[in-house]
C-alpha cells in the first residue's frame, strides 16, 4: 500500500473544507499550523473523517488533537496504518 502524501492531504482538505482565498495550499505548508491555513477544528474533524474513510483506518481523538500541522497529521496517519 502506497503512502498517504502531502498531495493526498491537500486534495482531501480542498474537497471537504474548501480553500481560503488568502492561503496558498501549494506553498510551503508542511509545518504551518492548520489555523493559519484557515482550517478550524471542525474542518480538521471533517478532513480526518475523510482520511479514515479512504484508508479504512481509525485515528483516535487524542492523536488528532495533537496533529496541529500537516506534517503531524501525516505522521498520525502513518502510525494509524
Amino acid at each position: 500500500m502506497k503512502g498517504f502524501t502531502l498531495a493526498d492531504l491537500k486534495r482531501v482538505m480542498r474537497e471537504c473544507a474548501g480553500e481560503d482565498e488568502n492561503v496558498d495550499l501549494d506553498g510551503d505548508i508542511l509545518d504551518a499550523p492548520f489555523e493559519n491555513l484557515g482550517y478550524d477544528s471542525l474542518a480538521l474533524l471533517e478532513t480526518a473523517t475523510r482520511i479514515e474513510r479512504e484508508l479504512g483506518v481509525r485515528m483516535p481523538e487524542e492523536v488528532l488533537s495533537g496533529a496541529r500541522t500537516p506534517r503531524l497529521l501525516l505522521d498520525a496517519v502513518a502510525s494509524a496504518r
Binding site: E15, C16, A17, G18, E19, D20, E21, G38, L42
Partner: peptide, 8 residues
C-alpha cells in the same frame, strides 16, 4: 462566495 464557505 469564497470557496472556503461552500462545503459548510
Amino acid at each position: 462566495l469564497p470557496g472556503r464557505l461552500l462545503p459548510q
